[in-house]
């Protein structure tokens, strides 16, 4: 099979690292060679976070080649736009409808991108864009912190790996007392995408 290239982006604290861990582990469980690379750097201080994940027969580089992202999973609008040029025209963008304003915006030195302009860029860039209200969905489940699993659930609906594989990988990676909540979060994301696919 052709290598599948994923990119996950967001803001430190949103739970992107667990999402990229799960995505990589699911690839391995499904029998692919997998490589993953996270830029952690200063992300814990509210910086941007970026993860590359690749599934394939044999994957050499852990970095997705320039402009060849198949699936961009953006936890935040500005960070999604920042990586949009990495997605090829036939790729898919799944973008959480959440704005987290950087200090340059709150201090009035810069403006947060206008929503219409953002949507136009998204529509020009790729064939398929899903604007997912992930934070609201997580809050409806009673815990904003499961945002990452809601988004992973949605992404799973676009990929040829059985939901049972996803759920078993997920179950191994979250504390036992949150397992049931996380499974519900995963299913809510997956149902959301299945209604729109």
């Amino acid at each position: 099979m052709e290598t599948v290239n994923f990119m996950i982006t967001g803001v430190g604290g949103q739970g992107t690292i667990l999402a990229s861990d799960i995505l990589a582990a699911v690839g391995l469980a499904a029998g692919y060679d997998v490589k993953k690379s996270d830029i952690l750097g200063l992300a814990v201080r509210g910086g941007a976070v970026l993860g590359h994940i690749r599934w394939g027969e044999q994957v050499h580089s852990p970095i997705v080649p320039e402009g060849r992202v198949d699936y961009l999973l953006a936890f935040e609008i500005l960070e999604g736009l920042r990586r949009l040029d990495q997605v090829h025209v036939g790729g898919t963008v799944l973008i959480n409808q959440q704005e987290i304003h950087p200090a340059s915006v709150t201090s009035g030195l810069a403006a947060y991108p206008d929503r219409d302009a953002a949507n136009e860029a998204l529509n020009v860039a790729v064939e398929r864009v899903y604007h997912i209200p992930g934070l609201g969905m997580a809050q409806n489940l009673g815990n904003a912190r499961v945002l990452n699993v809601v988004l992973i659930g949605a992404l799973s609906g676009l990929l040829p790996v059985e939901p049972t594989v996803w759920e078993s990988v997920l179950g191994e990676r979250v504390p036992a007392r949150y397992k049931e909540l996380n499974i519900r979060a995963f299913r809510s994301g997956r149902e959301w995408i299945e209604e729109r696919r």
Partner: peptide, 14 residues
Amino acid sequence: ERQLPLPELPGRSP
């Protein structure tokens, strides 16, 4: 390199 009609994107420093 893709040329997209992106709005100006403010940086995000820690």
